[in-house]
């Protein structure tokens, strides 16, 4: 066992660490949630990440997006994310995709992955991910944030939870509340934990459940949906 993963033990066995080293995870979105998710997965030992984002960093990202800094404004988020991964662990083989996920490229981008992670900022793409993850039989870890609030869920192929919690809405309360530094960090790390448990088949995952976080009231609600 290499030294960098020593502190993962005994929470994870040597075999489990080797297993996650070889897992293929696709993170869609390298912004507020995505930055913390990529950081968390990489430090945990996920060494084969595909990271997808079409955007470049701008000044409005600096309040919350982990990989943004004054020195990299204007740089592509996915490319910057891949550089960060290599800085943390040069054993990693990140695949940055500087493109917008859409119906014409989604299959090529997500196929072959063990888990897809929804860190996107719009309902349309979230529903697209659910649809194609079902077609390709890939579990999806969902997260979303808005101001003081955030939510996490795990969607297995066929569950269609996102169709039950979103309608044709393009956006949510984040459009008026914005997003601070702390909400994406917390929700992203819930998502990392769900991805880890899902991949290793450990503990309980948020299937048919939505974990809702309200940091303004310090409330965590677990909403169980009927199957």
């Amino acid at each position: 066992m290499i030294e960098r993963y020593q502190r993962n033990m005994n929470m994870l066995s040597k075999e489990e660490i080797i297993k996650i080293n070889n897992a293929k995870i696709c993170v869609i979105g390298c912004g507020g949630l995505g930055g913390f998710i990529i950081e968390g997965l990489t430090r945990l030992g996920f060494e084969k990440l595909t990271i997808v984002d079409k955007d470049v960093f701008d000044e409005t990202n600096l309040n919350r997006q982990l990989f943004s800094s004054h020195s990299n404004l204007g740089e592509l988020k996915a490319t910057t994310g891949a550089k960060r991964i290599k800085e943390i662990n040069n054993r990693c083989t990140p695949t940055p995709i500087n493109d917008e996920l859409n119906e014409s490229n989604i299959i090529d981008i997500i196929k072959g992955h063990d888990i897809v992670i929804d860190a996107v900022d719009n309902v349309k793409t979230k529903l697209l991910l659910q649809e194609y993850c079902e077609i390709l039989n890939i579990p999806l870890v969902h997260g979303a944030i808005g101001g003081w609030y955030g939510q996490v869920a795990v969607i297995l192929p066929g569950d269609k939870l996102l169709s039950r919690i979103y309608r044709t809405l393009e956006s949510g309360i984040e459009k008026t509340l914005g997003n601070p530094s702390f909400t994406p960090a917390i929700i992203a790390n819930f998502m990392v934990s769900e991805a880890l448990k899902l991949y290793l088949n450990k503990g309980d995952v948020l299937r048919n459940k939505l974990l809702m976080l309200d940091l303004l009231s310090n409330e965590l609600d677990l909403i169980e949906f009927t199957k």
């Binding site: 996107v120 949510g172 309360i173 984040e174």
Partner: peptide
Amino acid sequence: VHLFPPVAGG
């Protein structure tokens, strides 16, 4: 009755 607004940011 539980009422939730949409949360969709990323």
